[in-house]
Design a protein around this nucleic acid. Structure first.
Lengths: 367, 367
DNA sequence: CACGGGCGTTGGACCGTTCCAACGCGACCG
DNA sequence: CGGTCGCGTTGGAACGGTCCAACGCCCGTG
């Protein structure tokens, strides 16, 4: 049996195809009775209009392009989750463009532009210049960024409050009595890491603690080097009692370095991450971390994009989604001041592990 | 300036639009000179045919649907990476359908069916019945599964050799002299876990080791419970010297349990995972694991789907992508037999960590 | 020289919608 | 009682391609 067309439906309902079309676009001009009849006929023959024909006639497609980095980040999937939840309720579908980070994505943007398939574009930032996107936007295609890297740009974008996140982390540590707090940076070429570091410094300042340059560890998100640097720091005199990491994975590496040095998390050293990646609930001990709300960012971005597409009103602003601190068990009150084990990779206080259970009062567990 | 049409090009080239169309579909019937002229005109005016019009006229769209589980797995991104690399070289685009695992996806499949947007469907399996897909396939839409769960089905699917993977893991351990080898299962409702367990048992059998039921730990991929069970096992007499986990995350939990019990990985206990997730290269120690080649699976699935679409020949078979063992540093020669520390959560041999470096000869490092 | 055949080109119907101008009709008004 | 108005409906021209049947032309053949 051939696919039904609007014309068949019209015939079955004893109407012209124009009327059926009006029903499809639920025009207020059709008589309610007629509308019901048409709908009933459509339903009973389960008719669906050809999207190709619709697209051709309307001159616009029902597609939203989405560029994601090919990297296998937790982030990508999480953002997508949020995006999907919004889009699936809209009449649009998502066309997925995966930008493998190796080659630059100008040709990808080019394909999007010339194919003219999408009426809007969602871009999850990756380590690439945004100029092609800005040009695309200027040429009339609504573009919204999910700006996880905090890249500065004129495009409307959704980002997280990196600055405030780290500040909150600091406040938490300060409340726990920590004063020697170290920071393990991410690559400072990323705006987000710069912001996080700024939050770190301001957080210190607000607590009246003077920053000690020796407590800033330049990191590259690469665990082995981080372990090494952190171990050195812990081996020194007057070691920090807490670490703020720019990243959950970095935090994992920090925790391992702490254990390597014969110290305990969180009794001897507290550790805070950034992201609240899924696995952070199951680390050992579970990681206290600044939750970066990826799904919510996806939701917000999708919403903004839809609005821009429908209304044509591009506010062009930056939406800052607040972070929240997920307190788990990798942070605890600072150890008493005089405490300092003899040697760093110490056989030291030969700590029976697992004694960390049941620590602070405000342990919030996110899934 | 209005978007150019085929008719404009025809006029500019002094030809009929039929000929231009022929060029677009690179028919062999056009004179090479004419073709070049047309192409040149198109290029200089950078014309691209309207995909909506093409779709309408041809009666087929250039879209491939892809259903991915909304879960934030490494797996999803990795498979997609492979898929994208194949599709981007084809004339097709990917329409992304995210199936949030909460609600079942029959309505999603329904939407795909009635919208008739895609000419083929790629499905990354999730914990859901496949019947809707099989029906969809029967009704004429080519469907290919990336069957990471090993769900049995009549659909053409790409899966990994779970059985052989675990067997290889066992062989590795046996070669290292291990004889008391434990297995931490995943949810046995998953076919893949059943296969992995079968591989485990057969691997034991091949080495002439009789299976000890006490060494099989029922797992649920949930770290806390796994740590608990593993700790119990390690506390008992005659504890295992090696663990085969059905999953990298499970392996992480096992490693932590080992450390909790005051033992060392790999000197006292070897641990092997399954998947070779990105982070497994950076655990502490780096995890030896059975690499499940997600990108390759994506590539294979995309290829099969394209072939089926183009040729119409659905072989309908199962493609088994072999696994490979990535040997890192969580496995080592079995400890000497008599070795057994007094108490299990032992203050024991108070091991200075990091002594594991430079272990086996065949350390292969996968990024 | 008439004819057949092949190559390259072409006109135009068609794909299944949208959308606009026009139309029929009953109600309401003067 | 004729004219206007507005509501609901309608015919048909787009939209921008594809594809088929037909056509002109040139060349080789009988």
């Amino acid at each position: 049996m051939r696919k039904l067309t609007i014309r068949d439906i019209a015939q079955l309902a004893g109407l012209s195809k124009s009327t059926v079309s009006l029903v499809l676009n639920n025009s207020p001009k059709v008589d309610p009775a007629t509308r019901d009849r048409v709908l009933e006929v459509m339903r009973s023959h389960n008719f669906t209009p050809s999207s190709a024909a619709t697209a051709l006639a309307k001159g616009r497609t029902p597609f939203i392009g989405m560029i994601v980095p090919g990297l296998t980040w937790h982030m990508v999937a999480a953002v997508n989750y949020g995006v999907a939840s919004v889009i699936e309720k809209s009449p649009y579908e998502i066309i997925l463009y995966t930008s493998t980070n190796e080659k630059d994505y100008t040709d990808l943007v080019d394909r999007i532009k010339t194919s003219a398939l999408s009426v809007g574009l969602l871009v999850v930032t990756h380590d690439q210049p945004l100029d092609p996107l800005e040009e695309l936007n200027r040429s009339g295609l609504p573009v919204v960024l999910v700006n996880t890297l905090g890249v500065p740009s004129g495009l409307p974008s959704v980002q997280t409050d990196n600055y405030d996140g780290t500040r909150a982390a600091l406040r938490h540590l300060v409340e726990l009595g920590h004063t020697r707090i170290a920071c393990v940076q991410g690559p400072m070429s990323y705006m987000c890491c710069q912001e996080r570091y700024r939050g770190f410094l301001d957080g210190l300042a607000e607590a009246g603690i003077t920053a000690d340059a020796r407590l800033t560890v330049e990191g590259d998100f690469h665990p082995p080097t981080i372990r090494e640097r952190v171990s050195e720091l812990l081996a020194g005199d007057d070691r920090p009692t807490a670490f703020v990491a720019h990243n959950d994975n970095t935090a994992y590496a920090v925790m391992q370095a702490v254990i390597d040095c014969g110290l305990r998390v969180p009794q001897d050293v507290s550790v805070i991450g950034f992201d609240d990646v899924a696995s952070s609930a199951d680390t050992h001990p579970p990681l206290t971390t600044v939750r970066q709300p990826f799904p919510e960012m996806g939701v917000a971005a999708a919403r903004v994009l839809l609005e821009t597409i429908e209304a044509g009103t591009g506010d062009g602003g930056v939406i800052n989604i607040p972070t929240s601190l997920t307190v788990r068990q990798s942070t605890a009150t600072a150890p008493p001041k005089p405490y300092r084990p003899a040697g760093p990779p110490a056989p030291g206080p030969a700590t029976p592990p697992r004694s960390w259970s049941g620590l602070g009062p405000n342990i919030s567990r996110h899934d």
